[in-house]
Each structure stands twice: as structure tokens, then as C-alpha cells.
């Protein structure tokens, strides 16, 4: 098994790690860097539980090789600090079992940053990327809309 050393910028830190070229970003974040916020779900790009932010765009980390992320800025849910969106999720009861929550937070944060004036169609289009098997969709949508209505940005520490 051949491994190469790469450096990833994760949550504003430069992290050196040995990877196989065929390792997904999800695997490296969780198993090599100890960042277990991104959740393995379908591993097929369908469920969105593994969503992270790469250069300001929501990205399913099971659909990206770790080596593709060299030179890019990666933010995981661990890097989302002090953002109104987290408070909104708590206020609106936007989670039940919580497994999908990191993915929804990352996707919603990207939505708020990229489309601060998002209308209902854009919100639906973005949120359709994630699955919540507890079916907490309504509450999640309300949490996102409350942040958009406040005019707060998502940001986080990146």
C-alpha cells in the first residue's frame, strides 16, 4: 500500500497526513485527522451526512478524494464556531437523533453564505441535498429561514 504525505488546511490549521491516493476526504478527516463530525452514511453521495465546506462550497466528503483537497480550505462542523445557525437549530428543535445534523449544518451554512437572499425555491434546492431519517425537515427549514430572515451570515471560523 503506497502512501504519500499531503498537507490539508482544515479549520484554518495546516495538517500533514499520509494518505493513499484513493482515500476519500471523509475517510481521512475521520480516521487520520480525528475529525468525526462528518458522518459516514450512504458513502454514495446520496445522504449528505458527510457534508463539509471546501473553498466556500458545500461538498460531500465521500465524493472527494483527500488528495483533491490539497491547496483548498476545508471546514468541518468542528470549525463552525459561534454561528447563529447553531443557535437556530437548537431554538427550532431542528434535530432528533442528530446523526444528519453536522451535514445539514454545513450545507445550510453554505446556503446562508452563498445565497443570503435565498428564496423558498433556492432553500428547497439546497436542502434537498441532505436526508434526515427522523424527518425533521420542517424544523430544519424553519431554522435556516430564521437565520436568513435575521440577515446573519453563517461564516464560522473560516
Amino acid at each position: 500500500m503506497n502512501k504519500s504525505e499531503i498537507t490539508l488546511n482544515v479549520n484554518s490549521e495546516e495538517r500533514s497526513v499520509y494518505v493513499r491516493h484513493s482515500d476519500t476526504l471523509l475517510y481521512v478527516l475521520r480516521e487520520e485527522l480525528g475529525l468525526t463530525g462528518a458522518k459516514p452514511g450512504c458513502l454514495n453521495g446520496d445522504c449528505g451526512a458527510c457534508t463539509v465546506d471546501v473553498d466556500g462550497q458545500a461538498m460531500k466528503s465521500c465524493l472527494m478524494l483527500a488528495i483533491e483537497a490539497v491547496g483548498k480550505k476545508i471546514t468541518t462542523v468542528e470549525g463552525l464556531q459561534n454561528i447563529p445557525l447553531k443557535t437556530a437549530f437548537i431554538k427550532k428543535f431542528a434535530f432528533q437523533c442528530g446523526y444528519c445534523t453536522p451535514g445539514f449544518l454545513m450545507n445550510s451554512n453554505s446556503l446562508i453564505n452563498n445565497y443570503p437572499q435565498a428564496d423558498d425555491i433556492q432553500i428547497k434546492d439546497c436542502l434537498e441535498s441532505n436526508i434526515c431519517r427522523c424527518t425533521g425537515y420542517k424544523e430544519i427549514e424553519e431554522a435556516v429561514k430564521s437565520v436568513l430572515a435575521d440577515g446573519s451570515t453563517g461564516n464560522g471560523n473560516y
Binding site: T51, Q57, M59, K60, C126, S129
Partner: peptide, 12 residues
């Protein structure tokens, strides 16, 4: 395009 996969997947 808008009907292919989902918004996040279409970033890739």
C-alpha cells in the same frame, strides 16, 4: 442540470 443529483453533488 437542475434535475441531476442534488445541489451539493452538483458542486462536484
Amino acid at each position: 442540470i437542475g434535475e441531476i443529483a442534488d445541489h451539493t453533488a452538483r458542486n462536484k
